[in-house]
Simulated assay, not measured.
Amino acid sequence: MSEQQGEQGGPVVAQDIGPWVVEMQWPEGVTQGGPAVLVVRPKDRENRPLGGISSTVLREIDFKAAAERLRAQAATSEMRSQAREEYEAGRTERLRQALAQGVTDEYLAMLASAYVNYLSGGGKGPLAHLAERVGKGESTIKGHLWQARKRGLLIGTPGRAGGVLTLKAIAILTRVVPGGERISIVDVAAETAQEKPIEGE
């Protein structure tokens, strides 16, 4: 049984029943009651089961288990969302405290991480977003991101928003940020796939 997002925006829970896949979709935000949409399709679309869908297949659909799975997914999603909000609040405080010590590599690595994270999550206007969090002007933040690139902490494409953290930045974050050892390996892979910058001032 699996859960995914349906075409119309509501969550979908799938069950395997013999040669069939049953997909149940609930309206967005609804976790009680049965599904609003039910789709039964063959697992192998090239070799459809003989006789088609039978009443036996329909009786084997476990609506209770699907609803429980849906609620478990919703609870997990809510916990993740809450943890993300708490982490982001902590990130803002860490950024401000680090900047109070000066424009150090530690501060720049944290700023670069916040920048990459915000854009990878689909955020718009990263300079305004970071300026509000750090308590500085957009031009100051732009200058700090330039310094992060110059010091070998962030790789980016000139004239375009975004980038990836370097191994140097990840090493700093691992040391100074709570949970830093869980920095995405995707950042490392992306960094090693590109030409490495010359590190240093």
Rank of each mutant, 00 (worst) to 15 (best):
E138Q: 09
Y107V: 12
V37Q: 14
K43C: 06
P126F: 07
S81Q: 10
V22K: 03
L99D: 09
V57H: 10
P126M: 02
V134M: 01
R71F: 00
V103P: 02
E93Q: 07
G52T: 06
Q147N: 10
G34L: 10
W146F: 10
P49F: 01
G125H: 11
D105N: 12
R80F: 15
E60P: 01
E132H: 05
E23P: 01
A109Y: 06
E132S: 08
E23Q: 05
T92M: 03
P35L: 03
Q147R: 09
A98V: 15
K43P: 01
I141W: 07
V40Y: 03
R149C: 08
E132G: 13
V37A: 04
S113M: 10
L70S: 11
L108E: 01
R48W: 12
G102N: 11
Q97W: 06
G143P: 04
H144I: 12
A75L: 14
G29A: 14
V103Q: 09
G143R: 07
K142Q: 15
L99Q: 12
A72Q: 09
R80D: 08
K142F: 15
Q82K: 15
R96I: 03
A131H: 10
S81G: 06
G51R: 03
T56R: 07
D44G: 00
G123I: 00
A131I: 06
P19E: 13
G90E: 14
A114G: 08
A128W: 11
D62L: 05
Q25Y: 02
G125C: 02
V39Q: 15
E86F: 14
T104A: 05
W146M: 11
R84A: 13
E106K: 04
G33K: 02
E106A: 08
A148Q: 03
Q25M: 09
Y87E: 08
Q25A: 10
L130N: 01
G143V: 12
E85V: 10
R133F: 06
L50T: 15
P19T: 08
A131D: 12
